[in-house]
């Protein structure tokens, strides 16, 4: 099992105000810290036109984080590919990948907010063909430069298509483990049915809400930081559709229920409890865990504290564990 952390969204929110330049300065400090702690990856996220300045341009931000590190990989989780011109975004990604010696994990997603499509002049109905065109440009321009493509999806069909292309997937932290298991299986089947392109099964990465602590007050705070961080999704209007054993998680129409369900996914406690929880994640088919610890209200000191503890007490135990 391999480990990273995320998601750096570079916001300045109503309930955790700061200067945006502080957010970007801390991004670079956090990148250096992650590398020193021994993590493999740092993951950023993209949205547009939101009041809190949610990062709208992940590739320049990734380029900066890569410029202050030498081993750390930096990923986009996700770059909203249909909203950019294919050849240009591929050239930009190629530049980032080349300059970093191939340390760019280029996660791409479709996007889901109508206001973003409207603002960029892209009909939402065209997002799938535009995604295909973008992926083709990335394959031709960015991958030869050293970028690794990842896909964001919450549907079995979507992750199966990624598997069939021989590409990895990155799954949301709000997904319950039942859905993670279903999606990981669909990804694997998609890869197998396509004739195992590349010869090696492409990885499944999953954001998971994790916090290591024995302290009751820190536990309360960390769970409240998780709650606060998911209020954002109510503002953005994100949702997970009901399917089979997975109940709907609709942050727009039922924000209280959806937030509670997302917080309930948190693996929290002392190191043995984290290890037990991560074994379940591995058994669900996850190869890469991205600790979702960059959350609303968590100060940088708390972030570095928990990342260091996880690196010291959990990563060595889990490093030899493989996804089921």
């Amino acid at each position: 099992m391999r480990f990273g952390a995320g998601l750096w969204c570079l916001q300045a929110t109503a309930t955790a105000p700061r200067h945006h330049s502080t957010a970007y300065r801390q991004l670079l400090e956090d990148a250096v810290a992650l590398e020193a702690f021994g993590y493999e990856g740092m993951w950023l996220s993209e949205h547009h036109f939101f009041y809190d300045g949610y990062c709208p341009a992940v590739l320049p931000a990734a380029a900066a984080a890569l410029a202050v590190t030498t081993r750390l990989r930096v990923g986009t989780g996700m770059l909203l590919l249909p909203m950019q011109r294919p050849e240009r975004v591929a050239a930009l990604a190629a530049d980032v990948a080349t300059a970093s010696g191939g340390r760019l994990d280029l996660g791409v997603g479709l996007g889901y907010r109508d206001v973003e499509f409207d603002g960029k002049g892209v009909p939402r109905a065209q997002r799938v063909p535009r995604q295909r065109a973008g992926l083709a440009a990335l394959r031709d321009i960015a991958v030869p430069a050293g970028a690794t493509i990842w896909n964001g999806s919450a549907t079995p069909a979507g992750v199966a298509r990624a598997g069939a292309r021989g590409q990895g997937v990155m799954l949301s932290g709000a997904n319950p483990l039942t859905l993670v298991r279903e999606l990981a299986a669909a990804h694997r089947e998609g890869w197998q049915e396509a004739g195992r392109p590349g010869g090696t099964r492409p990885p499944v990465a999953a954001l998971r809400n994790v916090w290591l602590t024995e302290d009751a007050a820190e536990r309360r705070a960390a769970l409240d930081w998780q709650r606060a961080s998911y209020v954002l999704y109510a503002g953005l209007g994100w949702s997970v559709a009901e399917r089979d054993s997975t109940p709907a998680m609709d942050f727009l129409s039922d924000p209280g229920g959806a937030i509670a369900d997302a917080v309930a996914t948190t693996i929290i406690g002392p190191a043995p409890a984290i290890v037990d929880g991560l074994h379940e994640v591995a058994e669900a088919g996850v190869d890469h865990v991205i600790f979702r610890v960059v959350i609303e209200g968590a100060p940088q000191a708390a972030l570095h504290h928990v990342l260091r503890r996880l690196a010291d007490e959990v990563l060595p135990v889990m490093s030899t564990v493989e996804a089921s």
């Binding site: 570079l10 300045a12 200067h19 945006h20 330049s21 547009h48 036109f49 939101f50 009041y51 809190d52 300045g53 949610y54 709208p56 109508d114 206001v115 499509f117 409207d118 603002g119 960029k120 002049g121 892209v122 009909p123 939402r124």
Partner: peptide, 24 residues
Amino acid sequence: RWRVPSGLMGPGMPTTLAVTPKPA
């Protein structure tokens, strides 16, 4: 050359847009 917001997503969309974050 450009219409922002585009209006492509139909009625109900905001008629103005804030590009964020603003520069430092």
